[in-house]
């Protein structure tokens, strides 16, 4: 399997550095975006396998970004983990994120192995999404093909009828 790509969206310099080291160490390719706006752009162009995002960030926060990502055909099947330090109202924020379509969340103080475990669960989801998308594509192709065949049949039948008519009229 090719190297899996993870996009980290976080404004905190210390935070994103440690994410990068942990994830690179685990063999992932890591890209970094500094806020929601950059995150959107990066998600579209890089097509990561998983996104890890902070909640509050300048320019565009995590909730806003997740909402947009999950509405966009190009990015809606990328699993998202929301990560944050605990603060007041965190429960409400996390609920809002899950409602917006994020798949997973976790709080600080964070545990490296937990993070890696959650990432690999998300990658499984990504694989399932990918498989599903692929199957859908195949199904559609098949469908299109069978529809096409049916049309051809109808067309041929018409021709046969027409020929039969012609034959009948010659007699």
């Amino acid at each position: 399997m090719s190297i899996r790509k993870i996009l980290v969206v976080d404004d905190s310099q210390t935070q994103k550095n440690i994410y990068r080291e942990i994830l690179t160490g685990a063999g992932y390719k890591v890209d970094i975006a500094n806020n929601g706006v950059e995150g959107l752009e990066a998600a579209r162009t890089i097509q990561p396998d998983v996104i890890i995002t902070d909640i509050s960030m300048p320019l565009m926060d995590g909730i806003e970004m997740v909402k947009i990502l999950k509405k966009d055909e190009r990015t809606k099947y990328i699993p998202i983990i929301c990560a944050s330090a605990t603060f007041q109202d965190i429960g409400t924020k996390m609920k809002a994120l899950l409602d917006a379509g994020a798949e997973e969340y976790f709080y600080m103080p964070q545990d490296r192995l937990e993070l890696l475990a959650k990432v690999s669960v998300m990658l499984r989801i990504r694989t399932i999404y990918n498989d599903l998308l692929e199957k859908n594509r195949q199904l559609k192709q098949f469908n299109d093909a069978s529809v096409g065949r049916e049309l051809k049949m109808i067309e041929l039948k018409d021709k046969i009828t027409e020929l039969e008519k012609k034959l009948a009229s010659r007699k």
């Binding site: 905190s12 210390t14 440690i18 080291e21 942990i22 160490g25 330090a85 545990d111 490296r112």
Partner: peptide, 16 residues
Amino acid sequence: GGGFDTAAFIGACRDN
């Protein structure tokens, strides 16, 4: 350290 404990850093170093 951005909220991670030392074990997390050591683990990241070893992995790398």
